[in-house]
């Protein structure tokens, strides 16, 4: 008990004494972890956005929400009779709405803003020959039919989203890794400075027989707290990325596929826990290096 109080007191007095460096370390951790988190969110979003293209579906014909019934029937007639179509699945407005609701289960605002009547019905189509050339030829044929809003081919759409998301998430990840390394160094430096500020105390502690761990623990705690506080600051940033950036794609009408570009709130929370773990570990490692390098106990 006395010991815990001692660690607590020493750690916080040291942080207080070293406030400007501590802040720098914490903010660097926060920024780098926010980037790590954003990269994870983009990747997850992309995976969910392309989920519609499963089980051999190579292209999707989106109809206009207000397409006339005979336009719809014409498409269906082609699909039923064409020898090059293996199978297809019709997603009516109710189904589309249902999917949309599942995708955005935790965003009631978004769900309330749409109704089944504005959802585009679509055909998910499995061609008998899935080669890229054949698929794009078929897609062109359907795109020119009346009542068709747009045709998304798996190859094109998935490549688009994959390209976009890998590029973004890789760029974020590279920046994040560099920044995580920088923040580890900053934490190391901050703890080193804290050790320097307490040289005399440490000398006396060694003299009277304080154990090595007793001397080390407040410094290790200090680094770990930098990491954890940085992660705690990164978490709100993560929710902002989720709400603002991903929402921008969801609401853009340009590419219907991007509407699937969402991650559930649960995933954001899971990512937050990872950030705390990474932050704490980076802080602990940074301070452990400082302590073993500069505290020859």
């Amino acid at each position: 008990m006395y010991r815990l109080w001692y660690y607590f007191r020493e750690t916080f007095s040291s942080i207080w004494r070293n406030l400007s460096l501590t802040m720098a370390a914490i903010f660097t951790v926060a920024i780098s972890l926010a980037l790590v988190g954003a990269s994870l969110l983009v990747r997850e979003g992309a995976e969910r956005a392309t989920a519609q293209f499963q089980e051999g579906v190579e292209f999707i014909v989106f109809m206009n929400a207000d397409a006339a019934e005979d336009q719809d029937l014409a498409i269906r007639e082609v699909l039923d009779n064409s020898p090059v179509i293996a199978s297809y699945n019709y997603i009516d407005q109710e189904d589309a709405y249902e999917e949309f609701r599942n995708l955005f289960a935790d965003k009631p605002d978004l769900i309330n803003s749409v109704s089944p009547s504005v959802m585009p019905p679509s055909y998910r189509i499995v061609p008998s020959d899935p080669s890229a050339a054949n698929v794009s030829e078929l897609a062109d044929q359907f795109a020119s039919q009346p009542g068709v809003k747009e045709v998304a081919t798996a190859t094109e759409a998935i490549r688009q989203i994959d390209d976009f998301s890998t590029r973004v998430s890789q760029a974020l990840l590279v920046a994040a890794v560099v920044l995580v390394a920088v923040s580890a160094l900053l934490i190391l430096n901050t703890v080193f400075t804290a050790i320097g500020a307490r040289r005399q105390e440490i000398e006396v502690m060694k003299l009277v027989g304080a154990t090595n761990w007793f001397i080390r623990i407040p410094f290790m705690l200090e680094g770990t707290i930098h990491g954890l506080l940085g992660a705690a600051l990164a978490i709100p940033a993560l929710f902002i990325v989720d709400k603002q950036v991903l929402a921008f794609f969801q609401e853009s009408d340009a590419v219907p596929l991007f509407r699937g570009f969402a991650v559930p709130e649960g995933f954001v929370w899971d990512t937050s826990i990872w950030l705390l773990l990474i932050g704490g570990t980076v802080g602990m490692l940074g301070s452990a290096v400082a302590v073993t390098r500069y505290l020859d106990v």
């Binding site: 006395y2 001692y6 003299l207 009277v208 027989g209 001397i215």
Partner: peptide, 23 residues
């Protein structure tokens, strides 16, 4: 080798505190 930010009492108490003596 006294600690200048600690009082006389605290300097002596420090030696006991850091070897884990109770309050």
């Amino acid at each position: 080798k006294l600690l200048h930010k600690k009082t006389v009492f605290e300097n002596v108490a420090f030696a006991l505190e850091v070897i884990g003596q109770s309050r």
